[in-house]
Simulated assay, not measured.
Amino acid sequence: MSQQDIVDALIADQGVLFSEEIGANIARDTPQELFHWLIGCLLLAARISSDLAVQAASALRAEGLHKIDGLLDADDVTVMRCLGENGYKRYDGVATDYLKSTAAIIRERYDDDLRNMLDDDADTVLARLTEAKGLGDMGAQIFAREAQLVWDVFYPRLDGPAEQAAGKLGLTTDHGALVSMAGSRERFVRLTAALTRAQLRGAGDRVEQAAD
Rank of each mutant, 00 (worst) to 15 (best):
Asp5Tyr: 12
Val7Gly: 02
Val7His: 04
Ala9Met: 10
Ala9Cys: 13
Ala12Asp: 11
Asp13Pro: 07
Gly15Trp: 00
Gly15Met: 00
Glu20Val: 05
Glu21Val: 08
Ile26Asn: 05
Arg28Gly: 13
Leu34Asp: 04
Phe35Pro: 04
His36Trp: 09
Trp37Cys: 09
Leu38Glu: 03
Leu38Gln: 04
Cys41Thr: 02
Leu44Gly: 03
Leu44Ile: 05
Ala45Lys: 07
Ala46Val: 10
Ser50His: 10
Ala53Thr: 05
Val54Gln: 06
Ala56Asp: 03
Ala56Asn: 04
Ala57Tyr: 04
Leu60His: 02
Ala62Asp: 15
Ala62Lys: 15
Glu63His: 14
Glu63Tyr: 12
Glu63Met: 09
Gly70Thr: 06
Leu71Asp: 01
Leu71Trp: 02
Leu71Pro: 00
Leu72Val: 09
Asp76Gln: 14
Val79Ser: 03
Arg81Phe: 13
Cys82Ile: 14
Cys82Trp: 00
Cys82Val: 15
Leu83Glu: 00
Gly87Tyr: 01
Arg90Glu: 11
Arg90Gln: 14
Tyr91Glu: 09
Tyr91Val: 11
Asp92Asn: 14
Val94Gly: 08
Val94Cys: 12
Leu99Cys: 04
Ser101Ala: 15
Ala103Arg: 02
Ala103Val: 07
Ala103Phe: 05
Arg107Pro: 06
Glu108Ile: 12
Asp113Ala: 10
Arg115His: 10
Met117Pro: 05
Leu118Ser: 09
Asp119Val: 06
Asp119Lys: 08
Ala127Asp: 11
Leu129Ala: 02
Thr130Asn: 08
Glu131Asp: 14
Ala132Trp: 02
Leu135Glu: 00
Asp137Ser: 14
Asp137Met: 13
Ala140Ser: 11
Phe143Thr: 00
Ala144Val: 06
Arg145Gln: 07
Gln148Cys: 04
Asp152Lys: 07
Phe154His: 07
Tyr155Ile: 02
Leu158Lys: 04
Leu158Arg: 04
Leu158Phe: 10
Leu158Cys: 12
Leu158Pro: 03
Ala162Gln: 06
Gln164Cys: 09
Gln164Met: 13
Gly167Cys: 08
Thr173Asp: 07
Asp174Ile: 10
His175Asp: 11
Val179Gly: 06
Met181Ser: 05
Met181Leu: 15
Ala182Leu: 01
Ala182Asn: 02
Val189Asp: 02
Thr192Lys: 03
Leu195Asp: 01
Leu195Arg: 01
Gln199Phe: 09
Arg201Lys: 15
Gly202Ser: 08
Asp205His: 14
Arg206Asn: 15
Ala210Leu: 10
